[in-house]
Design a protein around this nucleic acid. Structure first.
Lengths: 113, 113
DNA sequence: CTCCACTATTCAGTGTTACTATCTACTGGT
DNA sequence: ACCAGTAGATAGTAACACTGAATAGTGGAG
């Protein structure tokens, strides 16, 4: 398991959950698939265990619906679907993110002059 | 002590340190002042204790130089100055942030269509 | 003179989160 | 029979922001 910078690890705290919610907003998916998609999108060092734990959390918070679906190539998949509560959480995430991104853009501009 | 959303609290993990580094890049400052400036910039619910702990961390990592300066209106101030190592850490922070912001912008665009 | 507000820092304890490492389990190919 | 790929679970650890409280100095209101 490759390891990414500690910087990125800390930065992902709080945002990774939003990222997964955003992925699920494009359609249902299961853990292994989500990990693979994240890797494709450049998050090459996300630990699989992290995603599974995060999905358990989403389920416990009632933000996703879960369905067990048999797979042709391995154990059954747990397919997660974003529900209304999840969509609401995603909206909140985006608004928090927007605030932070706006503040940081401002700070960066300050530093560049 | 007001409390902000849990969302923002988690999102600040890893970024707050970068934010403080960025503030220090504009000039030396002491803890109480940094907290006040953050409040002015919209981070109304940053806990003071958090900033002081963070500054201790920066000092231990050797990213800031410290000088004790008497104050006319209270106990002496600990004035922090960003040094070369701190500037390097700030650069790394900005590049991590740029990656994450770019990925999230992409994800948001996906979700919006 | 005493109390309070503001300035300024510190610290012990808590909760949340991502990571590490390991384990289980099913399929197909060599 | 073994191994690679698929799929999920979990116990333990480290890092970080927050809570709440304590200490300490100054100046002004009563």
């Amino acid at each position: 398991m490759g390891q990414q910078s500690k910087q990125m690890t800390e930065m992902l705290k709080g945002t990774l959950e939003g990222i997964v919610l955003a992925l699920l907003a494009t359609g249902p998916a299961y853990g292994y698939e989500i990990t693979a998609r994240l890797r494709d999108q450049g998050f090459v060092d996300i630990a699989e265990g992290t995603i599974y734990a995060l999905l358990v959390r989403l389920e416990q918070k009632g933000q996703v619906d879960v369905e067990k679906v048999p797979s042709e190539k391995g154990p059954p998949r747990k397919v997660f679907t974003l529900n209304a509560q999840g969509r609401e959480a995603l909206d909140e995430f985006w608004s928090s993110w927007a605030f932070l991104a706006e503040r940081l853009a401002h700070l960066k501009a300050e530093g560049d002059k």
